[in-house]
Design a binder for these strands. Structure first.
Lengths: 190, 190
DNA sequence: CTTGGAATTGAACGGGTGTTCGGTTTTAAG
DNA sequence: CTTAAAACCGAACACCCGTTCAATTCCAAG
């Protein structure tokens, strides 16, 4: 009961103010317990951050495995763009932390998280490579295009707010279209 | 003499470890003075951050005014993509701080910096609007495309390292091409 | 060499940091 | 009702925080 509430409070506070700026006492106050009691749920502050990031990235990889339609590269790229936006918009705090607090990780933790991140970066690269091989995409550099794609899609999190001018479905559609154009595929798959 | 060194040390440390994680004593040690002496060069830590961000964003806006070729929307988009990458790769620390430490700003400072950021976001939007009006671009939503473009271009800073597989000119060219495709302009301008 | 202002020191201020731990309360099973 | 374990409190530990300030050092102008 208390364990998940500690995680949730830490996630919200870390995302809002940054790992370094949040104290264990603030987290405890948010949960409604004393600071000492936190140590029943985490060995220390650093582990709280590390576990948070690992779980987020593992969930991301698992979710893509389930969402990947396979087959046609164009269809996979469309699916990837939509999946990425949807998954990230559903977890803005976890995303923010995973992208911004890498520098707060001690070397061993950093290596672990960075490896997970690289596994995800390999996803769009594989799709683009397949699309280029099948000559349905025009990709000057697979690595660069993959990074550009992820950066563009993740950028949605910086401005999207529920109740805004466009809903999630509309944003997904527009970005999927831009992603297609980015790699020289003029139209979405049939 | 000491003033600029304080700024430079603070910029490097803030970018490396985050504003909240860096102490005035660390900055002072980097410069080789006592912590108290810092207060001859800044009224407080917050102002150090605020001035750093303001100067970065004002330099960005000024530099674009000088780099903007005007005229043809396709040529301007190409120029903007290349300019953005070049300017940002030249100042990785300032860029990192301006994008990541907004949450460390007090409300008044945040409003000021945010206004500057919005002025820059208006730049690609105007170009895309012109391109759409001239029917040389296919832009479903100007605001979204502008944000997507900036996110994609700024993303270069997360992975580019001098001496890597591609030099800056090559990266610029590939990204400029992707930017064109993103907005439905199949080819770079003549 | 004197002088005055700028630069710097180093101690001090009140307060916050992550973490530990003995003791107390809560909880649920027997 | 007893009991054992889990949860929690709250004080304490050693240390770091941003900032202030009287005292000192530095240095160029006269």
């Amino acid at each position: 009961m208390t364990g998940p509430r500690v995680r949730a409070a830490a996630e919200r506070l870390f995302a809002r103010h940054g790992y370094a700026a949040v104290s264990m006492r603030q987290i405890a106050a948010e949960v409604g317990i004393g600071a000492g009691a936190l140590y029943h749920y985490t060995p220390d502050k650093q582990t709280l951050l590390r576990d948070m990031m690992r779980e987020h990235l593992e969930a991301l990889l698992t979710a893509w495995q389930a969402a990947d339609p396979g087959g046609d590269a164009l269809a996979r790229l469309d699916a990837f763009a939509r999946f990425h936006i949807r998954f990230h918009l559903d977890r803005p705090d976890a995303v923010f932390i995973a992208y911004m607090e890498l520098r707060a990780l001690e070397p061993a933790a950093f290596a672990e998280i960075e490896a997970l991140r690289r596994r995800y970066e390999a996803v769009p690269e594989a799709i683009l490579r397949a699309g280029a091989a099948a000559e349905v995409m025009e990709v000057a550099d697979v690595k660069l295009a993959g990074m550009a794609l992820i950066a563009m899609l993740t950028g949605v999190n910086t401005w999207y707010r529920d109740g805004g001018r466009l809903d999630r479905a509309a944003v997904e559609a527009i970005y999927a279209r831009m992603a297609m154009g980015m790699v020289g595929a003029a139209r979405a798959p049939a």
